[in-house]
Design a protein around this nucleic acid. Structure first.
Lengths: 112, 112
DNA sequence: TAAGAATATTCTATATTCCGAATATACACA
DNA sequence: TGTGTATATTCGGAATATAGAATATTCTTA
């Protein structure tokens, strides 16, 4: 039972574990947006965005509402915003480490 | 730049996106533990635990301290505990959805 | 120094994630 | 009904993650 709960938690973290999906949530943090406007703000492929939205939907992180032609997305549970806020605080207090990690990520990328 | 920051954030979430690593952090939440005691508490393979610890280390989520034969791990930044706390609140307020998702995870697992 | 304990690393097979291309679906409106 | 727009799904291949087995490293102590 405990293990199932951890699997569930992990699946939520997994859903957050992609830069594009983080960007989506940052957009939705300002309120409901259509898929189209999200796409324009992020400058990402339509199909790709749709796939990422599908992941967020499947984890119940966002809800969608159809209005005619368009589909509007919003964050389902406001507590998730707090998660992002605390994470922001984590990143700030961790800034020195973060910078170092960014550099490593960078140099690893160059090494490829 | 914004994109790099999101990649960094995603990498932190990624590090949390595994049931075993969540379990590790739940153990470390109670304080410093040796790899051995973590392993005993979790009942997981030694090599496997070591790999998961390596991931948490590489993301600077935990620190380790060598003492003789053993290596003691602890959570590096207490703000991370708050992240876990808020997440816990998220899971609680989301419980209905969570139960539904658990069932889906379950049935998907069975389907395989 | 040899043996044993604790931990890390490497290797290999498998599973999962990700992207773009192509295609499908749903709606709007002429 | 036909055409265009918005969104979702499917497919294939590349990249990444995961587990366990085998091996390496480091330390302790006889």
């Amino acid at each position: 039972m405990q293990e199932k709960l951890r699997t569930y938690k992990a699946s939520i973290f997994q859903a957050l574990a992609h830069p594009t999906r983080i960007a989506i949530l940052e957009v939705l943090r300002e309120g409901e947006h259509s898929a189209r406007t999200i796409q324009e703000k992020l400058g990402v492929e339509q199909a790709n965005l749709s796939q990422h939205l599908a992941i967020l939907r499947s984890r119940q992180i966002v809800t969608n509402r159809k209005d005619g032609n368009q589909v509007f997305y919003s964050i389902r549970n406001p507590v998730l915003l707090e998660v992002l806020d605390v994470m922001r605080r984590y990143f700030q207090t961790n800034l020195a480490d973060a910078i170092q990690m960014l550099e490593e990520v960078e140099s690893e990328a160059l090494a490829r």
